[in-house]
């Protein structure tokens, strides 16, 4: 486990992020991790005096997550990135590229999402 990490629900995300801002934390970035079981971990990293604080939200892939860009504007790029590369549903990003910050129309959907690889069981000759 990473140090100073707190598991929170998506309902508490805005409250916790606002609390971080009030307490003088700098938004560093967010990390999306596809756990491969239909859920995603979204970890928000904050810094104060070179000490990190990490808020982890675990959500189902089909669930929506509120944007934090209305609290920390600097989250716009990473939120668009997570939205495109992982298919994470984030609503109300301050600048929403509509899925075209990194991806073009011809690109595969959500290239960073884990693909289910089905290996055909072949019967050997006897």
């Amino acid at each position: 486990m990473i140090e100073n990490a707190f598991d929170i629900s998506k309902e508490l995300l805005h409250i916790e992020v606002e609390d971080s801002k009030i307490n003088g934390y700098r938004f560093v970035t967010a990390t999306c991790v596809d756990l491969g079981d239909g859920t995603l971990d979204v970890i928000y990293h904050f810094d104060k005096d070179l000490e990190l604080k990490n808020l982890r939200v675990n959500i189902k892939k089909e669930d929506e997550l509120p944007s934090i860009s209305n609290i920390y504007f600097s989250a716009i790029l990473v939120e668009n990135e997570m939205k495109e590369l992982f298919g994470l549903k984030i609503k109300n990003i301050a600048i929403d590229y509509g899925g075209h910050m990194l991806l073009s129309d011809e690109e595969l959907d959500s290239p960073m999402a884990k693909q289910q690889i089905v290996i055909e069981q072949r019967k050997g000759d006897k």
């Binding site: 970035t29 991790v33 716009i76």
Partner: peptide
């Protein structure tokens, strides 16, 4: 590795 995430400095400085 299961995941390697990299946040580079320019990514942080573009909003400024």
């Amino acid at each position: 590795l299961e995941r390697l995430r990299i946040r580079t400095p320019t990514f942080a400085n573009i909003p400024t």
